[in-house]
């Protein structure tokens, strides 16, 4: 078990991604600060377009070229700054140190090549492992509990079900035992029972390998199941960050509470789910001051200025001038 005083595995400082190189270009994500320790799972939640995927992709420097040029700030990984890395260093980083599970299992496997082919090309790069490629590929499929793995190696993606493909993608992403995994809504396109199985599998694999994880989702149920800490994103900024239990019990940001309130629960028979009025601003039209104030139930004059990220409780930060005080559900 690591203690909070250990240096974090990943330390993101002042990370911004702009549409182009100038500081005046509109930012997809802005001044992101986030730390992930070894073995820890941090959830990243927010509506579509809040910048979750942009943040995830920037950790592996897999943004489209235009956005990659607009990257500024630092991403310290094990002492090195990913933002400064050249192509060769990035190739070494990807797959081996940091890996990623992509959103869409139907589309993330190459339709032309067999599963075996696609697994082995990653395995071949894993110089330290022992055993034949074939055995290691079979072991990789076994680790994600794919039945009759020998036969599956000869299959093409279209011969497998969605759940099966997602597990193959998982196996491919995890073959080289990465120390950090970015999981970008890995289960949204799967049906609920398969979702559950896959999350269990992921948790299990993580526990065995002591891997850290950045778990991108918009599903608070998944956050509760998977994560130690959670960061809430709104319009390109982190607005609240803290331990999962804290955030669920005592959200401090008005946006976080609104998000939590819009999650349906079984014991509340509601005719109509509470929603957040309005819609998130586009990248080019972000409001001045607090990004959320046009939709906030408690907006005041001061909200026209950008609030700083402030620590309200141990390891619980919030970006709000007037943070919530009461416990959720108590009111």
């Amino acid at each position: 078990m690591t203690t909070p005083t250990d240096p974090p595995l990943l330390d993101i400082r002042n990370l911004s991604v702009r549409l182009g190189e100038g500081a005046a270009s509109p930012a997809l994500i802005e001044n992101i600060n986030l730390r992930i320790r070894a073995g820890e799972t941090v959830g990243l939640v927010g509506e579509s377009g809040s910048g979750k995927t942009t943040l995830g992709m920037s950790l592996m420097r897999l943004l489209p070229p235009l956005l990659d040029r607009g990257l500024s700030g630092q991403i310290h990984y094990d002492g090195d700054d990913i933002v400064q890395m050249d192509r060769a260093e990035l190739t070494r980083l990807r797959g081996g140190e940091i890996s990623m599970i992509l959103q869409d299992p139907m589309a993330s496997l190459n339709p032309i090549f067999t599963i075996g082919n696609q697994l082995k090309e990653g395995l071949r790069l894993h110089a330290t492992a022992s055993g034949s490629l074939e055995d290691r590929a079979i072991a990789a499929l076994e680790s994600v509990r794919i039945p009759s793995p020998e036969a599956r190696l000869q299959n093409h993606p279209h011969q497998m079900s969605g759940g099966m493909r997602q597990r193959v993608v998982g196996a491919i992403s995890l073959t080289r035992a990465p120390r950090l995994l970015v999981a970008d809504e890995p289960t949204t396109s799967l049906d609920v029972t398969i979702q559950y199985q896959f999350l269990e599998l992921l948790k299990d694999l993580q526990k065995r390998a002591g891997m850290a994880m950045l778990f991108i989702t918009h599903d608070f149920g998944v956050v509760a199941k998977m994560c130690d800490r959670v960061a809430v994103m709104y319009a390109g900024q982190i607005v609240e960050e803290g331990p999962v239990r804290e955030i669920f019990r005592r959200p401090r940001h008005w946006y976080t509470r609104a998000l939590l309130d819009s999650v349906p629960t079984l014991d509340q028979a509601l005719d109509r789910l509470p929603t957040i009025p309005g819609s998130p601003p586009s990248v080019a039209n972000r409001p001045q001051g607090c990004r959320f104030h046009p939709r906030c139930a408690n907006a005041q004059a001061k909200c026209m200025q950008m609030p700083p990220m402030a620590e309200l409780a141990p390891a619980h930060d919030v970006r709000c001038w007037f943070p919530l005080q009461e416990q959720r559900g108590a009111a």
């Binding site: 592996m60 897999l62 192509r87 190739t91 070494r92 980083l93 990807r94 797959g95 081996g96 890996s99 990623m100 992509l102 959103q103 869409d104 589309a107 993330s108 496997l109 190459n110 339709p111 032309i112 090549f113 090309e121 990653g122 790069l125 993608v169 491919i172 992403s173 073959t175 080289r176």
Partner: peptide
């Protein structure tokens, strides 16, 4: 621009393998 190219890069494959194998074959 496809997802399988992203995955190929995530795996840590070199850019030439990504282009001449994964993208060109399709």
């Amino acid at each position: 621009g496809s997802e399988y190219i992203k995955l190929a890069r995530v795996k840590g494959l070199s850019e030439s393998v990504v282009i001449w194998k994964h993208a060109l074959a399709n």
